[in-house]
Design a protein around this nucleic acid. Structure first.
Lengths: 335, 335
DNA sequence: CTGAAAGCGCTTACAG
DNA sequence: CTGAAAGCGCTTACAG
């Protein structure tokens, strides 16, 4: 595969490569005669010229490539984030390189190195537990980075998050007002701050309320979610629960939990009310419409790209964090 | 952000850039003294050197970048394809650039151009209707390309598909053997050959069978799938179907259809049996376990990368198409 | 209005 | 064992 270069055009047109470059880049300052301009465009067309961005990148030090690191691109939430980022990035002329960290700090670091070697102009990352140092290194190198969805304690890096604690608190208060006998929080056994925020919001609402209810926390690891959730619900919820509320702190947890409910013919909301963080098409298959907390994914993507583009064009060390508001979408699963 | 270069190392070590390059690339043929070798590694370490792959690419004409074009990365099926491709690609040192075509031939072409400009070493694409010419152009330029999931008529390009028609035929025969009064095929109104293959498989089984049943085809466009499927089922299935089988030719169609069933309290498999192409976690939320056709996604990804890597390293014009076998996973939704 | 030339950060035959 | 030099395909001040 031999592609044509600016040099080929120059030769055919009988001009210098400089002239070709000026014409093709529409640098009007250097007024090239209409005649040669036309000739150059024609030749470029006929020999099927496409610019070599690699060469351009080397010169300009810009690749128009953005690195995206998520936990797992096959995860519903992240694939939607990725899709929205892709669209917003394209609008600004960027293309996305994507990698999955699998919640592994080492792999996360490898990916940042790989992307850095590919000279991405910037990175959008969902950091994993233990990746503080990796992030700090990037910041120290003045590498444009923004976090999305997640953030890490003690690392000052710009990013986009939602008001996890607040929305969790508000929705929990709503739950409390309904007077359940038992409320179960299903969450992750994790150090990830954004997930802990959700839990703290839940706890805060509970402790500041005058209502009393039997409160339980079921925490599962990041792997084998489905089995763990089902097993724990079996132990703690039983087959014939009454006047109980389930609070799932992610859509994956919710899918696992709802699967348990439907398999055991537990009625929602008659026996158990359900509220879940994040949406997913899967809810459509559940007999009752699910009440969920909706993250403004499109807005998150837009702000992330904007923030990153800003950093790329004019780097300023800043830990600027933008917090967007999630909202509750109330459906029948909450009595 | 100013990164250090090979030149910086050379200066600090008091050697030439050539020597540094040889050492860093572990080219043992040119035996460099252990002493300078060590010095160079140390310096590289301390000044935090990372190679500029862009510069290397320009010289070697290899970027180790692979372009992936899917219909929509937020679609469950494609995000899983992407994830598997990512892993296989990484094993061979490639990184993935991802783009979504939205079933739009123009956007598909734009993406190929963009990727080509980024000098990707090759592309893995799920072509869209009308993208024959775009594909032909790439082939003509001897650009390494392999298709995945889909293929196009009359274009000779290597690729991976599954035996859509065969598996559809086999599963339909199975359905026929159960003696349903009514069988409804829910598919797409499309020209995409791999989807038509599924329909042809269904038709073939029907026409070559001695059994008779009321056969219906519900075809929907590629947009607004959910609403269309529900509306059509409402008209053609009704609220109290009996001894009927539903054949969904994709997981998105199945999710839409199952949602209709669950909302209308239609019992599976007592009233309606269900079989679906492709899996999704969403099935977990349906009261009955769904019988589905499982594509060997991991194997598809592996073969695609292997085929592409082969093309990249030794280009030979070939329309080699690899067909893998899908398999039926039988569950309770089929009586 | 146009071109010669330097240079981006590497690799690699070639010479010594 | 090591280095000088050419070159990958562009861009861009500078000169004319």
């Amino acid at each position: 595969m031999k592609r044509s270069s600016i040099k080929d055009i120059a030769k055919l047109a009988g001009v210098s490569v400089a002239t070709v470059s000026y014409v093709l880049n529409r640098k009007e300052e250097q007024r090239i005669s209409e005649e040669t301009r036309k000739k150059i465009f024609e030749i470029a067309e006929t020999i099927n010229y496409t610019p070599n961005k690699i060469a351009k990148s080397l010169k300009t030090n810009k690749t128009k490539l953005l690195g995206l690191i998520v936990a797992d691109i096959s995860n519903d939430f992240y694939s939607h984030i990725a899709r929205n980022l892709e669209d917003k990035a394209l609008q600004l002329g960027y293309t996305l390189i994507i990698g999955s960290s699998d919640e592994n700090a080492e792999k996360f670091e490898k990916l940042t190195q790989l992307f850095s070697q590919q000279q991405v102009d910037g990175m959008i990352v969902a950091p994993v537990a233990g990746s503080e140092k990796t992030l700090e290194n990037l910041i120290q190198l003045k590498y444009p980075v923004v976090t999305i969805d997640r953030y890490l304690k003690g690392v000052s890096v710009p990013g986009i998050t939602i008001d996890n604690q607040e929305i969790a608190e508000r929705t929990t208060s709503l739950l409390l007002s309904k007077g359940f006998d038992k409320m179960i929080y299903i969450g992750y056994e994790t150090e990830l701050p954004h997930l802990l925020d959700r839990q703290h919001g839940f706890e805060k609402a509970i402790s500041s309320s005058s209502k009393t209810a039997d409160i339980q926390y079921l925490l599962v690891g990041l792997e084998n979610i489905a089995q763990e959730v089902r097993a724990q619900l079996e132990n703690n919820l039983g087959k014939q629960p009454e006047n109980t509320a389930l609070y799932f702190s992610s859509n994956k947890l919710a899918v696992a939990g709802l699967s348990y409910l439907v398999k055991n013919d537990i009625k929602v909301p008659e026996q158990v009310s359900v509220i879940a963080f994040d949406e997913t098409d899967a809810y459509d298959l559940f007999p009752t419409e699910i009440t969920y907390i909706q993250q403004p994914i499109e807005e998150m993507a837009e702000e992330a790209i904007k923030l990153l583009d800003g950093q790329i064009n004019d780097y300023t060390a800043t830990g600027k964090r933008i917090t967007l508001s999630a909202k509750l979408v109330a459906k029948a699963s909450l009595k």
